[in-house]
Amino acid sequence: MTKLLLSLHVIAAIVAVGPVTVAASMFPPSARQALAEPGSERAVSNVRLLHRICRVYAGVGIAVPVFGFATAAAMGVLLDPWLLVSIALTVAAAIVLVVLVLPRQEELLDALGKAEAGGTASSGPGAGTATFPDRTATLPDRTATLPDRRTTARLAMYTGVFNLLWATVTVLMIVRPGSTTGA
């Protein structure tokens, strides 16, 4: 049973966490491209797809700790220090993803959506005015301007922290300090 649980845990990690790390890493440069090409529907749809992958697979990723706890219980290692550190790092990675990465991706998508709807504004006359197909609305200047490169750079940094936390958990799972398996 332990081998089955461990296999499910590893498969869940590959299938769920892998796509999130890749899509989240691809998001900032794709968002920069979409921001640089405001009229490009393809660039915006790429960013939307990457965000959807992050959201969906983050939800699927809940299977990883579920199978992980079941495996650890079956192996009798629930209180081993390497596992406790791995659990803490996994919680930290989840917090980074849910609190820092996904909301900032959504903010960038909102900004791109406003740009697509004609909601971008440049400095000068008419700044803050968005033209929509049926009406004209005045938007506050902070929502009418597109994010700058610092916004996507900050998102890339948070994504890097998320990926580094997962890489550390992976190494701990393989090396398992104090393990008697010789690995």
Results as ranks from 00 to 15, higher is better:
40 S>G: 06
40 S>D: 08
40 S>Y: 00
40 S>I: 00
40 S>F: 00
40 S>W: 00
41 E>Q: 13
43 A>Q: 08
43 A>T: 09
43 A>D: 11
44 V>A: 07
45 S>W: 00
45 S>N: 03
46 N>S: 12
46 N>I: 11
46 N>F: 04
48 R>G: 00
48 R>Q: 06
48 R>N: 08
48 R>A: 02
48 R>V: 03
49 L>R: 02
49 L>W: 00
50 L>S: 03
50 L>V: 04
50 L>P: 01
50 L>T: 06
50 L>G: 02
50 L>C: 06
51 H>N: 13
52 R>W: 13
52 R>A: 15
53 I>S: 02
53 I>E: 01
54 C>P: 01
54 C>L: 10
55 R>I: 04
56 V>C: 04
56 V>E: 05
56 V>W: 06
56 V>K: 03
57 Y>P: 05
57 Y>K: 04
57 Y>I: 00
57 Y>Q: 12
58 A>S: 08
59 G>R: 09
59 G>W: 09
59 G>P: 03
59 G>F: 05
59 G>S: 08
60 V>A: 13
60 V>D: 06
60 V>L: 15
60 V>E: 06
61 G>R: 01
61 G>E: 05
61 G>F: 03
62 I>M: 11
63 A>N: 09
63 A>T: 14
63 A>L: 14
64 V>F: 05
65 P>A: 05
65 P>M: 10
65 P>W: 12
65 P>R: 12
65 P>S: 07
66 V>I: 15
66 V>E: 07
66 V>N: 08
67 F>L: 05
68 G>T: 13
68 G>W: 07
69 F>N: 06
69 F>T: 11
70 A>D: 07
70 A>S: 13
70 A>L: 15
70 A>I: 10
71 T>I: 02
71 T>S: 15
72 A>T: 05
72 A>M: 12
72 A>W: 15
72 A>N: 13
73 A>C: 10
73 A>R: 12
73 A>H: 13
73 A>Y: 08
73 A>P: 07
73 A>V: 11
74 A>S: 02
74 A>P: 02
74 A>C: 00
74 A>Y: 01
75 M>A: 15
75 M>I: 06
75 M>W: 06
75 M>Y: 06
76 G>R: 03
76 G>N: 08
78 L>P: 15
79 L>P: 06
79 L>F: 11
80 D>F: 09
80 D>E: 15
80 D>S: 11
80 D>A: 15
80 D>R: 14
80 D>I: 04
81 P>D: 11
82 W>T: 02
82 W>D: 07
83 L>Y: 12
84 L>A: 04
